[in-house]
Design a protein around this nucleic acid. Sequence first.
DNA 1: AGGTTTCTGGAACGAATAGTCAAATAAAGA
DNA 2: TCTTTATTTGACTATTCGTTCCAGAAACCT
Lengths: 190, 190
Amino acid sequence: MARPKAFDRGAALAAATKTFATYGYEGTSTEALVKSMGIGRQSMYDTFGDKRALYLEALQHYCFESVGQIAVTLQATGSPLTAIEAALLGFAARIQDDSMCLGVGSVCEFGRRDREVTAIGKSSAASMQNIFAATIQRGKDLGEIPPEIDPKNAARFINATFIGLKVMARGGATHDELRATARMALRCLA
Amino acid sequence: MARPKAFDRGAALAAATKTFATYGYEGTSTEALVKSMGIGRQSMYDTFGDKRALYLEALQHYCFESVGQIAVTLQATGSPLTAIEAALLGFAARIQDDSMCLGVGSVCEFGRRDREVTAIGKSSAASMQNIFAATIQRGKDLGEIPPEIDPKNAARFINATFIGLKVMARGGATHDELRATARMALRCLA
DNA sequence: AGGTTTCTGGAACGAATAGTCAAATAAAGA
DNA sequence: TCTTTATTTGACTATTCGTTCCAGAAACCT
């Protein structure tokens, strides 16, 4: 039983994610995929199935990691309000390449046309709003956030703000513009 | 000099806009275009040039009309604050089909890759932020909006909220959810 | 080393793509 | 009615697409 070279599956998936995020599903050819992943075409088909399966796996993985990253940020900081601020601003600071958030990109490209894509998006958005809602509730308990705020609505609003920031970043907004926008959004919770 | 049937150019462009908004640029085939426009393929090429030119014209027209519509809403209502509310909520109420805002869609699909698409988006976003900023300044003058609000930043924030609402609507959010989100955003201006 | 297994590269396929050409059709003015 | 002209239709080209097949190269294990 030999086990030759074996490329890095995770790295290949990450590369595919970036390519999909940059050019969209329809805008990405299999040739562009194998080139960006740095593996042979046959390896891609053997490892990930086909283009669609690769996209779904990339989307799934991206959303999962994305939610996890936000959750870590939210729990790392003590104050709930500054935690949300850190999440928003931290994101704004992390922008550097011209690739889109794959989650937002999938919603924009497919809408609700594709059942599996929609399912991943729904689940991811639900998780995102849950952790935001929990943090906001924590802020209410601590008196940082006024009691008339409904955590569910506020969480959805924060999510909407995130989406807006991502699209504006994709459109070429500067870090300063994103930061200012994020700070404006935080006023709603104060 | 005869002048035969002559299809409705504006209606054809509107149909193309909707198709592009639903399926994206790469996701729309010329066959889908001519079918949705209700004209022959040759007519399309004669009238609009090629697929790209048609897309650019649709995008341009859509953005222009979009900005105009917002401007009308903002000036129709007396109070600046309720005008912005009307713009946000009015949009949320108008959602019914599953087509994306073509402007947001173009940014998500192309980023800053395409010079002409980028130019249209930039110009449209600038107009949008200008009319929002003017309305917010008016609100400050009337004392409806607190003086510490920077009109430019607030306008950008409102624009970001718009984007968030549009993407959430595309993802299947209900009218109630959109309304609640819009109301949360308005808290920032109060 | 040898053998086994994975990966790569190129060739090939059918389907779909954007765009063009020419003939057929239908409406308006003479 | 007859000509003119915009539109439609279908055939056509060339390219690109996603996918599969196959031969060769490379890496691990014994």
